[in-house]
Design a protein around this nucleic acid. Structure first.
Lengths: 236, 236
DNA sequence: CGTCATTTTGAAGCCCGTCAATCTAGGTGG
DNA sequence: CCACCTAGATTGACGGGCTTCAAAATGACG
């Protein structure tokens, strides 16, 4: 199964939660540590390299995943086989919520960078919620966040000119980082995210770089001129 | 408040649930009738005319709404004020789920046709779930459906040529009706849904009509040649 | 150094956005 | 009853932005 093909899954101890990169932000952020310590025995931590699949559309939904660090893309495939990115997950985000409804995953989740995730059995979440109904608030909060992101994708990243879309994407990716840094996606990923071709993504990225709107730092990071990108995002 | 500006809200009795157009499909479809009868006293049924607002983005989320019949659009406004339709609701669908998280509505819900809705206090749903944790499954199912729709909007209705998008939209609207009928949207609504201009929506609609791909029935209904539209949707 | 994937750039064509005019239908008041 | 008004739909003309197809450049890696 593709969700077992990669990542070294190791057991989780209460100590892991204390030092967790997503501490205070994950699905279980709000529950009492003593309660959480009773659950973590069933958790597993795993790392993924770029391009590795965390779960695949159609896989039976047995786990939800809490992203500790890294960037994950959520994919749907069109009838023609082309992939479209319908969501992104970052540190603290929970993915695979469909597992809570005991159905197969609706999307494919693929690491875009080095990632660490915490794998939680969906049955355990359902059972815990049965005994602590107030936990539903935490679950609904995740779904609300995912619904919000979908709206952002539709309003910000799927409308306007290609220049505007790419500017908005860079600003979106900058949000969660310091010093106006953002992960630099491949041109193909930009295309799949924005509904444009790889060539157009490349052309505009190169243009932004020449114009000093972005500065490439490493192989996969860049620094953004947010003020200038903001102007482009708004169509000026 | 815009969600009180329209619609005649009237009390609900158990008898209403028996004859409910969304019977067997609404949020409370799975619970025991005896249990439901204890809740319905707090429900309110209302009707809305086209263009009337059910709730507005920013309104405090106090209710979830179960759509009995009709078509509702869910809107987000871009920074420039242009409206983008990020979702549609049809018979049996539940809207306003953000209310369960005790936050303001994230979208605006507007009737596109004559609608009847059942208004349910969010506090009542949260309370019922506290006493019957297994009810969470029904709630998660609604969120999953809304997530699925968002993915469809991104993959089917925001990619490909304008011809493809409009064909896919007509097929999507046909799904829930007999005899290949579909509600006929205004050109402006088509544009807001597909990320194209009103003029383009008009041009292609007229083209489809001339080509016999759709036949206008009344002011707001049409019959679709699904086989031909299917071919266009796939890019032939 | 050679290979392969990715990125960049070029050239041509078309789809769609923009601006504008015309047409249609429904509603109102004289 | 009809002239008038208005909102929405339709159609035209034009230009530009994006896609498509193609080739060259870059860079990672054995």
């Amino acid at each position: 199964m593709s969700n077992h093909a990669h990542g070294n899954f190791r057991q989780v101890t209460p100590a892991d939660c204390v030092s967790c990169p997503a501490h205070g932000r994950g699905l279980f952020a709000a529950i009492a540590p003593a309660e959480r310590d009773k659950l973590v025995g069933a958790f597993r931590i795993a790392t993924f390299n770029p391009r590795e699949t965390i779960y695949h559309v159609g896989d039976p939904g047995e786990y939800v995943f809490i992203l500790h660090f890294g960037l994950v893309k959520l994919l749907r495939y069109s009838a023609s086989g082309a992939e479209r990115i319908v969501g992104l997950a970052r540190s603290g985000d929970t993915i695979g919520l469909a597992a809570l409804s005991q159905v197969a995953y609706r999307r494919t989740a693929v690491a875009m960078s080095a990632c660490e995730i915490c794998r939680v059995p969906a049955a355990l979440v359902r059972d815990y919620n049965r005994r602590h109904p107030e936990f539903m608030a935490a679950i609904l909060e995740r779904y609300l966040a995912s619904s919000d992101m979908a709206d952002t994708f539709l309003t910000e990243l799927s409308t306007g000119s290609a220049h505007q879309r790419l500017a908005r994407l860079l600003l979106y990716l900058t949000e969660k980082h310091d010093h106006n840094e953002a992960p630099l996606l491949t041109r193909e990923e930009m295309g799949a995210l924005l509904g444009i071709t790889t060539e157009t993504a490349s052309r505009i990225t190169a243009e932004f770089r020449r114009g000093g709107l972005i500065a490439v730092l490493g192989a996969d990071r860049c620094r953004c001129n947010t003020e200038a990108l903001e102007r482009i995002a708004q169509g000026m």
